[in-house]
């Protein structure tokens, strides 16, 4: 569904992402991993059209969308969420979701009805009339998801939707993401919470210093010396092996 080929982005002399490629097959959940500063979010911004890649192409549903504006990409069915949640603070939850729903429903009544439906699906039925500013972090993360879903997007790019959540909330949102996938959506997620990645993703990519260093199912990745060293430092893999616990 999504094919990213050799995209690169430099900020001044810093190569944030170099020659990264990844594939997201339709109906799958794919994770993008990597230590802080590895270039994951930069990858997302390039895929979703917020910044233009210096080189490389992004193909979505067979169409080259490299360099299109975010609203054009969104209209084609791909949407990103933000790592730092971005609610429309002055609006109610329902109004927030309705902004997403307006993309394909021009009438206010239709958009509002869809917003209520999506809100209830994500377990926000009781807070639809509350101002978004009053939500907890977990609520705001759900709101990001709900807004994205309301646009009718087929591919969701989720940027750390579980960061800052307590374990019980993580379990809830893992369930929600799985439910979203089962309804026919495709998901590419950036995540640090390994518990979630292990249970959700069929396959994962690992970025380090802007380069793709590994691509495998998550269970194999955690054994991969290159990945362990990316997270724990040079030589960590051998030391762990000698210590006897990987």
């Amino acid at each position: 569904m999504l094919e990213v080929r050799n995209i690169s982005k430099s900020f001044g002399g810093l190569k944030a992402v170099s020659d990264a490629s990844l594939d997201v097959p339709e109906g799958s959940i794919v994770a993008l991993l990597g230590p802080n500063g590895a270039g994951k979010t930069t990858c997302f911004t390039m895929i979703a059209g917020f910044t233009k890649p210096d080189t490389g192409t992004v193909t979505f549903r067979g169409e080259d969308i490299t360099g299109l504006a975010p609203h054009q990409i969104c209209a084609r069915g791909m949407i990103r969420t933000f790592q730092i949640v971005q609610p429309f603070a002055g609006l109610t939850v329902e109004e927030n979701i309705a902004v997403g729903a307006y993309l394909h429903h021009h009438d206010r009544a239709d958009a509002t009805a869809l917003a209520r439906k999506v809100g209830k699906q994500l377990g926000m039925g009781g807070m639809l009339d509350r101002p978004a500013a009053s939500l907890t972090i977990a609520g705001r993360k759900r709101l990001e998801l709900a807004r994205a879903l309301a646009t009718g997007a087929k591919l969701l790019l989720l940027d750390e939707v579980m960061a800052g959540l307590i374990p019980s909330e993580v379990t809830e949102i893992v369930g929600i993401i799985r439910q979203i996938r089962d309804e026919g959506h495709t998901i590419l997620l950036i995540e640090h919470v390994m518990q979630a990645v292990m249970s959700l993703a069929e396959t994962a990519y690992v970025l380090n210093y802007g380069e793709m260093i590994a691509h495998a199912p998550p269970k194999e990745l955690v054994q991969d010396p290159a990945v362990i060293e990316a997270y724990l430092g040079h030589g960590a893999a051998t030391r762990l092996q000698e210590g006897g616990h990987a």
């Binding site: 979703a48 917020f50 504006a69 975010p70 609203h71 969104c74 209209a75 949407i79 990103r80 969420t81 933000f82 971005q86 609610p87 429309f88 603070a89 002055g90 609006l91 109004e95 902004v99 997403g100 993309l103 807004r147 994205a148 646009t151």
Partner: peptide, 15 residues
């Protein structure tokens, strides 16, 4: 209103 509240989020939602 969405643009007033958060322009980046508005862009991401297809506006």
């Amino acid at each position: 209103i969405a643009i007033r509240e958060n322009e980046d989020a508005a862009r991401a939602l297809g506006i």
